[in-house]
């Protein structure tokens, strides 16, 4: 069983929003980035995985086992970082740790204090006095201190400065030096992901648009730029989405279709970054899967 996390046909509806047939899986030893615009369902999906929200139908499998009736034991093996405050604001970092640690059978003080030192988190300060970034570092230290095999993080990089974001990515790559572990995290800062993520899962309006290897993604789409005069040709070639600029136009196309246009010297093909892929896919909302 190589899948450490597997969602199959997960449905959950709320007033005015629904997760619609969400399926994807993550293998051991890899990092998956979960992206999508605000309100697309990233946090809701994560809350479903952690069973903080009960799903209407479908199944979530963790470490090869269904989470139904099992979630308590399975959570011992997960390091979870929320996007919101979960600590006791009035207590110091040290006291918060004393409250949290007993919940984990495999809590490891040595690792915890090592990360606290590495991340520069003050142990004697009350949590409410910490900056958003420092709280996130504390949460991360907690998530990494009980020998979790799967790290799940909801927007861990928001509120962090670029220097620590870089350090965080180092820590993540450190975690998966053990090929039995895996990391799943949501974010809207795609530049962080571009380098370290093995897989990208993109959610839009409660539906999964794709879940692919990052490497394949950069072949699946191409950005085509050209002068106004070539616009009709491009439009005929079924672009996913097209945008007019003062110099001409820019269009996101399926890689295969774009390559057929490659011989035309007035067109310029580029590898899009994740931001551009996300932007154009969101723009062309009604896209087929």
């Amino acid at each position: 069983m190589d899948d450490i996390l597997e969602l199959s046909h997960v449905n959950k509806s709320f007033k005015g929003f629904a997760l619609d047939d969400v399926s994807f899986s993550l293998k051991k030893g890899y990092i998956m980035g979960f992206i999508g615009p605000n309100g697309a369902g990233k946090s809701t999906t994560i809350r479903c995985i952690m069973d903080l929200v009960h799903i209407d139908s479908g199944d979530v499998r963790l470490f090869g086992e269904s989470f139904k009736n099992n979630i308590k034991a399975l959570k011992q093996r997960i390091g979870f970082v929320y996007d919101q405050d979960v600590f006791f604001e009035e207590l110091t970092v040290e006291k918060n740790k004393r409250v949290i640690a007993p919940f984990y059978e495999r809590w490891d003080d040595d690792i915890f204090y090592r990360y606290i030192k590495e991340f520069d988190v003050p142990l004697d300060k009350k949590v409410k006095a910490l900056s958003k970034g420092t709280k996130m570092k504390f949460a991360l230290a907690v998530a990494l201190s009980h020998h979790a095999e799967l790290i799940i993080m909801d927007e861990p990089t928001s509120g962090l400065d670029p220097v620590f974001r870089k350090e965080l990515l180092d820590v993540l790559l450190d975690v998966i030096q053990d090929e039995n572990k895996a990391i799943f995290f949501s974010t809207h800062i795609t530049t962080d992901l571009e380098k370290v993520a093995d897989y990208i899962t993109f959610i839009l309006d409660g539906k999964i648009l794709f879940s692919k290897e990052m490497e394949d993604l950069s072949e699946a789409y191409l950005l085509v730029k050209g002068p106004r005069s070539a616009e009709s040709e491009i439009k005929a070639a079924h672009p996913i989405s097209i945008k007019e600029t003062s110099l001409g136009f820019e269009a996101l196309m399926e890689g295969k279709e774009a390559r057929e246009l490659a011989d035309q010297s007035n067109l310029h093909l580029e590898r899009p970054n994740l931001d551009e892929i996300m932007y154009y896919l969101v723009k062309s909302n009604g896209i087929n899967r």
Binding site: G29, Y30, I31, K166, L169, D170, L173, D174, I176, Q177, E179, K195, V196, A197, D198, Y199, E213, M214, E215
Partner: peptide
């Protein structure tokens, strides 16, 4: 593969390829 990925700050799959 994993050590090189970490050293270069890139994904495991990229290194594997």
């Amino acid at each position: 593969i994993r050590a090189l990925a970490k050293e270069l700050g890139i994904s495991v799959i990229t290194t594997k390829r």
